[in-house]
């Protein structure tokens, strides 16, 4: 079991200080880990939606 009080290092790059104006000038490799996670979810749309019987929305 993981320790309960340890800080958790996430898998998402911290872009909180980045302006949109700088976004396109970045090396894409900087975002590769986060992008891989994002695209894996995009490719499986049914796994992104949660809720109370949302299949009945159809």
């Amino acid at each position: 079991m993981m320790p309960q009080t340890a800080d958790v290092q996430t898998e998402v790059q911290d872009l909180s200080a980045m302006k949109l104006a700088d976004l396109q000038h970045q090396d894409p490799a900087r975002f590769s880990g986060t992008l891989r996670r994002l695209l894996s979810r995009v490719e499986q749309p049914s796994r992104s939606i949660s809720g109370y019987n949302p299949q009945r929305l159809d």
Binding site: V12, Q13, L15, S16, L20, P28, L35, L38
Partner: peptide, 12 residues
């Protein structure tokens, strides 16, 4: 954290 996520998607 979601802003970081959104920016990566937007850039791609």
């Amino acid at each position: 954290t979601e802003r970081s996520w959104r920016l990566v998607g937007l850039r791609h």
